[in-house]
């Protein structure tokens, strides 16, 4: 494994039992993602993009295969260690923002720091700083319902950064946004990459590739080259085996 490789997977498989069938979301994926890259993962629905993101983020366990992130072998981590990995190594950005409706923007951003045992005053300072960075200093006491989609996603980005993780995983971060908002979010992600972070983003909007340093194309749970990707079908890989 090269020194510059930040994410490394070998023969990564994830099978979901679904309605009597086994769905092979990932079917032996080999991946090498460079440190400090902005990698866009593209693929049609059902190609395993989100599954890959969840496995890399330690939100789910693979059926088989190996994942190493920043030198950590995720299969070897127990539930507690995996939680600490999520806390310190990964920042998540979701398509649907996943903000807590009853909390203000400031509280939402500070939320992860509560579990990290950071004192209240420092939490507030850090959250304010990040909201300023994403241009929401005037909306710190607004609740999610009082913010636009783009603003909500900015809050989510600020939240992903509070514990200063080296890896940002974004699951279709522009999927619920209009073009202008989506574009500004992509600019923010590009800034994160430029600040030294590794960003892995899932999207099926090919326009977003202009910000990327690398592109991974997924088809039926496998990485494919551009030619195969363009010519292939987008049907999900349904195998006739019962669980």
């Amino acid at each position: 494994m090269a020194e510059a490789t930040f994410i490394y997977t070998r023969d990564l498989r994830k099978i979901y039992p679904m309605g009597g069938w086994n769905v092979h979301a990932l079917a032996g994926l080999d991946l090498d993602v460079k440190r400090n890259s902005l990698t866009v993962v593209m693929g049609p629905s059902g190609s395993g993009k989100s599954t890959l993101l969840y496995l890399l983020g330690g939100l789910d366990r693979p059926t088989s295969g190996e994942i190493r992130v920043n030198g950590k072998i995720l299969e070897e981590l127990d539930e507690n260690a995996l939680a600490l990995y999520r806390r310190h190594t990964v920042g998540f950005i979701f398509q649907s923002f996943n903000l807590v409706a009853s909390m203000t923007a400031l509280e939402n951003v500070a939320f992860p720091m509560r579990f990290a045992g950071i004192p209240r005053r420092k939490r507030k300072e850090r959250a304010l700083e990040l909201l300023r960075q994403v241009g929401l200093e005037k909306h710190i006491y607004h609740r999610p319902t009082e913010l636009s989609g783009g603003q909500q996603q900015r809050v989510a980005i600020a939240r992903a950064l509070v514990n200063d993780p080296p890896l940002i995983l974004a699951d279709e971060p522009t999927g619920n946004l209009d073009s202008a908002s989506g574009f500004s979010i992509m600019q923010l992600l590009a800034e994160l990459h430029q600040s030294g972070r590794t960003v892995l983003m899932v999207t099926h909007d090919s326009r977003m590739t202009r910000f990327s340093t690398d592109i991974i194309r997924l088809l039926d749970g496998r990485a494919v080259d551009e030619t195969e990707y363009d010519s292939a079908t987008t049907l999900p890989n349904l195998e006739g085996t019962r669980p």
Partner: peptide, 16 residues
């Protein structure tokens, strides 16, 4: 449930 998922995604342990 989604909030619990979020808590875990941002680093809450099972014990938390």
């Amino acid at each position: 449930t989604r909030e619990i998922g979020l808590m875990k995604a941002v680093g809450a342990t099972n014990r938390n």
